[in-house]
Amino acid sequence: MEQLLNQLDQNLKELYRKAVDADALLDELAQQGQAKHQAIFPADSLFRVSSPRFLPYLSETAEQVASIRLTQQFNTATLELVVKQLQLLHKTLLEFRTALSR
C-alpha cells in the first residue's frame, strides 16, 4: 500500500509544477482579455470542484490521496477515481501546453 501511495504522491508532485505554470499562463491570457472560460473541466467531469484554473482540481485529487494515507484504507472505486483524475489532469495539461506552443 505504501508503494501505491508513493506513486500517487509522485504523480501529484509532477502535476503540481505543471499546474502552477499553466495557471500562470492562464492568468496572463486573462489579463490580455483571453481565457474567458468558466471551468477547465465540464460540470459532469470526474471532479466536484469547478474552476477556471488547474490547481483546485489538483488540490481535490491531493485531498483524496491524503485521506487514503490518513485512514490507510481505500476502496477500489476511490482508487480508480483518483487514478482517472490524475490521468485527466496529465492529459489536459499536455494538451494545453501543446495548444499554446502552436
Rank of each mutant, 00 (worst) to 15 (best):
Q3E: 15
Q3S: 15
L4T: 14
L4F: 15
L5V: 12
N6R: 14
Q7K: 15
Q7R: 15
D9V: 07
Q10G: 07
L15A: 09
L15V: 06
L15R: 01
Y16P: 00
R17K: 11
K18N: 10
K18W: 02
A19D: 00
A19N: 03
V20I: 12
D21P: 00
D21G: 04
D23W: 04
D23Y: 06
A24I: 08
L25G: 03
L25P: 00
L26S: 05
L26D: 03
L26K: 09
L26A: 05
D27V: 09
E28S: 13
E28M: 13
E28R: 14
E28Q: 13
L29Y: 08
L29F: 06
A30Y: 09
A30K: 14
A30W: 03
A30H: 09
Q31C: 10
Q31P: 01
Q31H: 12
Q32Y: 08
G33K: 10
K36V: 06
K36T: 13
H37A: 09
Q38M: 08
Q38N: 14
Q38R: 12
A39Q: 11
A39R: 11
I40F: 02
I40E: 01
F41C: 04
F41G: 01
P42L: 03
P42M: 04
P42T: 03
P42V: 02
D44V: 01
S45Y: 04
S45F: 06
L46R: 02
L46F: 03
F47T: 00
R48C: 13
R48M: 15
V49P: 04
V49H: 05
S50N: 11
P52I: 09
R53H: 10
R53W: 05
R53A: 06
F54I: 05
L55F: 04
P56W: 01
P56I: 02
Y57V: 03
Y57M: 04
L58E: 01
S59N: 15
E60D: 09
T61G: 01
A62D: 02
A62Q: 06
A62G: 07
E63K: 14
E63G: 15
E63T: 12
V65K: 00
A66I: 00
S67R: 14
S67P: 00
S67T: 09
S67G: 10
R69K: 14
R69C: 03
T71C: 06
Q72R: 08
F74V: 07
F74Q: 08
N75Q: 08
T76H: 12
A77Y: 07
A77V: 13
A77F: 11
T78G: 11
T78A: 14
T78P: 02
T78D: 11
T78S: 13
L79Q: 06
L79Y: 10
L79G: 04
E80M: 11
L81M: 13
V83Q: 15
L86C: 03
L86V: 07
L86N: 03
L86M: 07
Q87W: 10
L88N: 01
L89E: 03
L89C: 08
L89Y: 02
K91S: 11
L93V: 02
L93T: 01
L94P: 00
E95T: 11
F96N: 05
F96V: 07
R97T: 08
R97Y: 14
R97P: 00
T98M: 10
A99C: 05
A99E: 11
A99W: 09
L100R: 12
L100I: 06
